[in-house]
Simulated scan of single mutants.
Amino acid sequence: MTLIIEDGSGKPDAESYATAEDLAMYATKFGVVIPAGVAVQEALLRRAALAMDGMTWKGRKTRSEQALSWPRREIHLDGENKPHNYLPARIQYGQMALAAEIHQDDIDPVEKRKGAVVRERVEGAVDREYAAIPSTSNRLLPAAPDRPSATQFADYLQTRGLFSIRV
């Protein structure tokens, strides 16, 4: 089934910002591993788009009935107000990066994964310890925050970078 691509008009049935062909070119350019079949690539792009819908973006959806989070209105970026049909290239690239990260999470064995950093000591050499991930867990761990998709999305998310919490 062919993906329905968002073109900036706020389609109510859009499923992705990128095509399987776009994802294949992205993988070639950046040397990431993706599955060979078009149907599986499209499924990865759909999963990435769903993950993106859970993110807190700047602005508001252009139309309440649009399927995906973008396009958005009330976006002020780089000193200018962006038009209501603005669809940043980094949203498309971020979706493709996220799709590649999801695929990597799918194919990595559980024992190879690392949990959150629970201890880090810097004194000459760096000593880092990761939380254990049980091999009995059936949950797919989300892509790590230091992956390329997070960099692509940074300017468009409500909260960017580090923030402090007053205790």
Rank of each mutant, 00 (worst) to 15 (best):
T2F: 06
D7F: 03
S9M: 05
G10R: 07
K11E: 13
K11T: 13
K11F: 15
K11S: 07
E15Y: 02
E15P: 05
S16I: 15
T19Y: 03
L23S: 10
Y26F: 07
Y26S: 02
Y26T: 11
A27F: 07
K29L: 10
K29Q: 05
F30I: 01
G31V: 14
V32E: 09
I34Q: 04
I34V: 07
P35R: 11
P35S: 13
P35Y: 11
G37A: 09
Q41Y: 01
Q41V: 05
E42A: 05
A43H: 10
L44V: 02
R47K: 04
D53G: 15
G54I: 08
G59S: 01
R60T: 11
T62D: 02
S64C: 01
S64W: 03
Q66W: 07
P71F: 07
R72W: 15
R73Q: 04
R73K: 15
H76W: 10
H76T: 08
G79W: 03
E80N: 05
N81R: 08
L87Q: 14
P88Q: 12
A89C: 09
I91C: 05
I91K: 13
Y93D: 08
M96A: 13
A99L: 02
A99D: 00
A100P: 03
A100D: 14
I102S: 06
H103V: 12
Q104I: 09
P109C: 13
P109G: 12
E111H: 08
E111M: 09
K112C: 09
K112M: 10
R113P: 04
K114I: 13
A116T: 04
R121E: 10
E123D: 10
A125I: 13
A125M: 04
V126G: 06
R128F: 10
Y130R: 12
A131Q: 08
I133H: 15
P134N: 08
P134M: 02
P134Q: 06
S135F: 11
N138C: 01
N138G: 03
R139C: 12
L140P: 09
D146Q: 02
P148F: 00
S149P: 05
T151D: 00
D155F: 00
D155R: 00
L157K: 09
L157F: 11
L157D: 01
Q158L: 07
T159G: 06
T159L: 10
I165P: 01
I165G: 07
V167F: 04
